[in-house]
Nucleic acid binder design. Structure first.
Lengths: 220, 220
DNA sequence: TCTTGAAATAACCAGATAGTTATTTATGCT
DNA sequence: AGCATAAATAACTATCTGGTTATTTCAAGA
């Protein structure tokens, strides 16, 4: 196989390492708590390289956030839910966000950190808006298809649905540490995770489906 | 009226001012981004006083968080939902959390900050657990009453319901800054807030009510 | 009025931290 | 081979920051 000869000078690779290290550090400590020295060390790079390639700490944060958001939306698009029957598509969508948040916990903390700062880093990000549009469109399409098939309610707003779909998974996971104390229950055991996913799927179905659809599903 | 003479030395008042200032600063910048100098200045107190009364920055943070949580649960208890008819009680509960999060935005950012730190400040807080128990119990009672009246589904888990009830409001509000960009829509206009609250109430009702109950409500 | 302890303050310190400067080293091109 | 340029490094700096020390000020009880 074509082994890439190890290069001593490799700008692309260095930038990649810095970005990866920054993602870990920003996710773990937030923008304010993250340390550029730690990022450089973890990247096996010199701090000066970070400033050379990315400008400053906040510009690096912005890029990390945009990339994380892009990865999430790309994974979502790859689901190809347009080809699924509406009820199945909704189930898969809920399961997808749940599993993605679990597999990529940095995503949640990065988004939280950006919201703590009132989204000032991406406020004027064209890239951010462009990455979002197809995702909003997908929910509109799904709701229309479901309604036309007589399965879904006809008056649902796609934005509200997008938000609710994310919220039931995101909130559980982002607040899992205080939640464990408040509810005196292990929210992250395998059984608990499975139970929550199933609960979320049922919740979303009850929100979108007509009472008739629900009755049929429950009698099946 | 009995005007309290302004005292030059007033330990209770000084502590109160420091706590209030700390709440603002921690909420705005998170634990890592908060500055003790800023807290002292905003409290019109000396930094030394903070260390004298509260020990250190993290102990102060813990107390601020516990107080914020206590305030929230106290307000919730004051609703006296036990006396309401189940469907009304659920509506009022959803509206309460929604309005509380809007009126007390620090609550959300404080909880987020604590979760970023894996809840290490309240991990062994007896006070935190004690404040939580009645709240979990309230949902159990409500669900039982609703089920006995034939209004609610009989198989609902109180913890899942508590989490979901909070999530649909909390997520919308905590992520309102990135949300505004992602959805290219003002999520905080008066109309948008009203719409979201109504959507959340309907969502919760659809999750808990039996299909028969829903049908009756929709035909009314 | 005098004494005593708590409340309050200001100045300070050591370590941390984002960002820079000056310099060296590898790589691709001719 | 040698040159020009980009990549990489280490050492440095000004400022910030949580926490402390030394000291002063006030208020209440005897």
């Amino acid at each position: 196989m074509a082994l890439a000869k190890k290069k001593f000078r490799d700008p692309d690779e260095t930038q990649r390492r810095i970005l990866a290290a920054a993602k870990v550090e920003f996710a773990k400590n937030g923008l304010g708590g993250a340390r550029v020295d730690v990022i450089a060390a973890r990247a096996n790079a010199n701090k000066r390289m970070m400033y050379h390639y990315f400008g400053n700490k906040e510009a690096l944060f912005k890029l990390v956030l945009e990339n994380a958001y892009g990865d999430f939306r790309a994974a979502e698009a790859a689901l190809a839910l347009d080809k699924e029957e509406p009820v199945t598509a909704l189930r898969k969508w809920v399961a997808f966000s749940w599993n993605y948040f679990i597999a990529n916990p940095e995503f949640i903390t990065l988004v939280n950190s950006e919201n703590l700062h009132k989204a000032r880093h991406i406020k004027n990000s064209k890239r951010m808006q462009e990455m979002s549009r197809p995702f909003v469109g997908r929910m509109e399409t799904l709701l229309r298809r479901g309604a036309e098939a007589g399965l879904f309610r006809a008056d649902l707003d796609a934005v509200q649905m997008n938000i609710t779909l994310a919220s039931v998974s995101y909130y559980y996971l982002t607040n899992r540490f205080t939640g464990t104390i408040v509810f005196e229950r292990d929210l992250m055991s395998e059984a608990a995770l499975k139970e929550r996913l199933e609960f979320n799927i049922q919740s979303m179905l009850r929100i979108v489906c007509t009472p008739e659809t629900l009755r049929k599903m429950e009698h099946a």
